[in-house]
Design a protein around this nucleic acid. Structure first.
Length: 440
DNA sequence: TCTGGGGTCCTAGGACCC
DNA sequence: TCTGGGGTCCTAGGACCC
């Protein structure tokens, strides 16, 4: 059996722990740049505010005193997530952290009564110790556990825990679940489903497998099986990431090559730092630029270019130099750029790289690696730290937040967050000590 | 006026090989 | 004029997730 633990309205709940006056009030938390709504309290959901709503569309509610708003505070959320996850990890033999606010608990070898009991205790323990409300759904497959957690969240009678452990409960749950609420069925496929007369998860499982295969291919068949209790999503996600991306929208549109170049260098340095934290190196570096897609009155240009490295690298110098090379291949004056980013992929273990290097430029590379590790040490002790939000393996890692104090000259140090709106951010209650250190 | 960021997997089609 | 067949690898783009 799998138990899916899902933090209710996670970002809002984190804010409420330290600002109890938000309790019972309609609250939303915004994305980076104060762009869109990414988390809502039950009260703001009830007001009809949808996920992803641009903030300017609900700003009048804030001004009228009918809605509370906070900018996202990922350092706080990451730290709160770690606290929740460590309680969960202590309670069961195996945990798979799926996202910043969700984890699957593998409940192998426990009898049903005990599972329900453990889950109920976890709900109250997390609430009591961290202050975050969670819901838990239990079932044979992850897809069904997701559905169970929806019920646990939706109906008070479950008191936070819903178990689907026989066919009768399963079919009842499926018939009450709109097909679009099923894990793995996204917006595009909902349309196709509805056109075919499939409205609920129960409608879907009644269709023959060949029909599902024809219209929705392998991912569709997996979901179809999972809904019937046949496990398809079993394996844990691999430990190492296959790509790392750092990108940001700018508060204002930028035109100047030099100004964008500094951002790109910063993004590249951030990617390189993450590679080193994971003990990996990347063989490809991609830089992309985007104009403002919402300004249809302006010329659009969304180029990207990829530079391949001879030898996979993780030093700031090498990644930045490749990212800037790609940037110079695509930058064209005359456009107003709204966003840029750097993606590194072709990721391999650092050890594997060292094994295959011989020859003339080995020394230079070694020196850059040494320099990078010294920079990391300085930034670790003086910079502001942030916890990694997601690691599929459940292993916790610390991540730099980008407020480095030392870097490569092409970066715009200390200005990583410049030009990003964050007008309603709360304090970093649980990690502020390091910020104080930084000031001194 | 104002519209996020970071991932994964799958598939179709092209390049290339014998 | 006629113009094979089968395999692998890579990549871009689509769909999905939170």
């Amino acid at each position: 059996m799998y138990a899916l633990v899902d933090c209710n309205n996670f970002f809002v709940s984190c804010e409420r722990v330290f600002q109890p006056q938000l309790e019972g009030r309609p609250v939303v938390v915004l994305s980076n740049n104060d762009g869109c709504v990414v988390a809502r309290s039950n009260e703001s959901k009830a007001m009809g505010i949808r996920m992803g709503t641009p903030f300017y569309q609900v700003k009048h509610l804030v001004e009228a005193g009918r809605l509370e708003v906070r900018s996202s505070n990922y350092i706080l959320y990451g730290d709160m997530s770690d606290r929740v996850m460590s309680i969960l990890a202590d309670a069961v033999p195996k945990i798979e952290i799926y996202s910043i606010d969700e984890a699957f608990l593998v409940m192998d070898g426990l009898d049903r009564e005990r599972i329900a009991d453990i889950c109920r205790k976890l709900v109250s323990k997390v609430r009591k110790w961290v202050g975050i409300p969670v819901s838990i759904g239990v079932a044979r497959t992850k897809t069904l556990a997701k559905i169970a957690s929806h019920f646990a969240k939706q109906y008070r009678g479950y008191r936070g825990v819903c178990v689907i452990d026989d066919d009768e409960k399963r079919m009842k749950a499926l018939s009450l679940t709109p097909i679009g609420d099923v894990w793995g069925v996204g917006r595009r496929n909902v349309v196709k489903m509805q056109e075919a007369g499939v409205r609920t998860a129960a409608d879907f499982v009644e269709r023959p497998e060949v029909w599902v295969d024809r219209h929705f291919a392998i991912p569709g068949v997996r979901t179809w099986k999972e809904l019937q209790g046949i496990v398809c999503h079993e394996e844990e996600l691999p430990d190492k990431r296959k790509s790392i991306c750092t990108s940001r929208s700018f508060a204002d549109m930028l035109t100047d090559s030099g100004e964008i170049e500094e951002k790109v260098a910063d993004f590249a340095a951030h990617c390189a730092r993450k590679l080193r934290e994971e003990g990996t190196a990347a063989a490809q570096v991609t830089t992309f630029l985007m104009t403002n897609r919402f300004r249809t009155d302006l010329a659009q240009y969304n180029p990207s270019a990829t530079v391949s490295l001879d030898v996979a690298a993780s030093s700031a110098q090498e990644i930045i130099s490749a990212a800037l090379k790609a940037f110079r291949m695509i930058y064209r004056p005359g456009y107003q750029y709204k966003k840029a980013g750097v993606i590194v992929d072709g990721i391999v273990d650092k050890d594997a790289v060292q094994g295959v290097i011989f020859g003339f430029d080995n020394t230079a590379r070694e020196r850059q690696d040494v320099l990078s590790s010294v920079m990391d040490a300085v930034n670790d002790s003086l910079g502001l730290m942030e916890r990694s939000p997601v690691r599929p393996s459940g292993r916790r890692r610390r991540h730099s937040s980008g407020t480095d104090v030392i870097g490569v000259a092409s970066q715009h140090l200390g200005h990583f967050a410049d030009g990003i709106r964050s007008e309603h951010r709360s304090r970093r209650y649980t990690t502020e000590f390091s910020e104080i250190l930084e000031i001194h």
